[in-house]
Design a protein around this nucleic acid. Sequence first.
RNA 1: GGACCUGUGGUGCAGCUCGGAGUGCACGCCGCCCUGUCAAGGCGGAGGUCGCGGGUUCAAAUCCCGUCAGGUCCGCCA
Length: 570
Amino acid sequence: MRDCLCATLNASMVGTRVSVCGWVAKRREHGEHLAFLDLRDRSGILQAVIEGSLDVRPEYVVRVTGTVSLRPEGTRNERLATGDIELSECEVEILASAEAPPFQLDDRVDIDEQVRLRYRFLDFRRDRMQVNLRLRAKVNSSLRRSMEAQGFCEVETPLLWAPTPEGSREFVVPSRLHPGEYYVLPQSPQIAKQLLMVGGFDRYFQIARCMRDEDLRADRQFEFTQLDLEASFVTQDDILAFVSLAVLDAAEAATGVRPSTIPSMTWAHALDRYGTDKPDLRFDMQLHDLSAAFATTQVKAFSAPCVKALRVPGGASYPRSRLDQLTEQAKELGAKGLAWFKVTSDSLESPLARFLSEEESNAIRGVDGAQVGDLLLCVADEYAPACKVLGALRVAIGSPPVSEGPHQYVWVTEFPMFEGVDEDGNLVAAHHPFTMPHVEDLDLIASDPLKVRSQAYDLVLNGWELGSGSVRIHRADIQSRIFSALGVSDEEAQNRFGFLLSAFKYGAPPHAGFAFGIDRLVAIFAGEENIREVIAYPKTQSGTDLMTGAPKDITERQKRELHMKITSKG
RNA sequence: GGACCUGUGGUGCAGCUCGGAGUGCACGCCGCCCUGUCAAGGCGGAGGUCGCGGGUUCAAAUCCCGUCAGGUCCGCCA
């Protein structure tokens, strides 16, 4: 039907007669003797010259047969890739007519996302979506190549899986053949891939769809895609190397620039200096510890186990309203308050300044090489909350949009094994219950569990958590110690993970793995703030699909077959 | 579950503080004119339940309350 794509034509083809197909992007009529038609296909725009009038409208689907010609001198268009040429002596065949689209299909205006999502198929015709989805395809392809080159085998795992209640809420699928019983959609192929290790697939990967029925965000959808991998007879460092190589390959494929190696820091360091487990290294503004200087303070606001400070360069010019807003934000984050100090030429300007001892005042002035014109923010609290509050303020004040600036990757390692206790007093696993503790910390499980480090690690890019992984427990004795620390009884463990535990009795190799979000990675490559921009058919924040209307009711017959009865709505 | 922002012809905005006739701009759409345009140009035209409901008022796009939808965030996301 067509000989080539619009933008593949160039001056070297002059004289050739070709047929091209696409959509009418624009029509410019000059009376009944001359008209120009801009034809758009996925490659770009090509101008066709029509001698005579032409009854086509924008978005008509046409096939144009014409002769590739050089444009007359002075009529070339440098802004068009095909601006030197045009099709002349054209025959136009209308393949489909079209109504005027509900919004403009050029990239000159931002269209409300509600409208774009309702007419996603039209949104696809715009450059932004074409570029983003093709970029995503390129990243997928690069990841596959990279994993295969590293000896990994792609295995698909089921979407209909058994309920194994863990951290996040699962999507549930009622069974027709088994009344009152359910499948769930996987939150990740975690257990499936560990069983592949038991089965001898010592290097597995998958570009896997995962589903979690949790509230949506700019970086979270119900369903998202991960590069999921697992390997046997490897250490943590092996996994970091596998993943680093795949990510760097993808970055090069997507951006044309290959980042250098990915640095790493411990979780403890990230919390201490950046107040978060996903530090954004595109800007400095590290947290500083003033606990020692305030150990015996008389100032009530600073009487706490920990005092942390953050220097805001140039922040002394903040008006009172901005400082109040930051204080408000700190309180929302759980701080008792926020102390601020403006560094002026001879003193500290602050409501609290006159209560400070000279030593304390000097300690504050000394933070991070503070200079006149800087602002210093301090939070006094328990250690972790103090870090987290200032870490959040650091991001609020200093962080550029996630899509801007250099791409700063970092590995965060040595996560704690447990992150506190639940309402029943049981420890809560920070990663998942199959995570291997740091070997040196095994004895702490009973004595001081919150100090136990795990062999779990995250990959972070520009302050976004791309993914996480861990070395897994492959020994029954350690697994049962962890389950008991988590308050999971033998019976419950058997009930939830019995098939995994039983598989491990038949010779489980030491193994470790990782999974990272492709949506997030591609969004950052694409310079998008929101993963919806790199997903073909995303859901809204309330989990609806504006194009299909999902979720929707099903027929009475379907409900009968599924043995379902709705007893309440809301 | 909570906080905040947005909702005005098909699209993108302005109007809202401080109430006074659906007022304005750009794009698109329809008709006519136009032989080298390319964000074509000129002339004319159509198109509105100001998200929805209630309240205050002589009078509401504008103020108040509620509600719906979209977004950002907190909670949640092993």
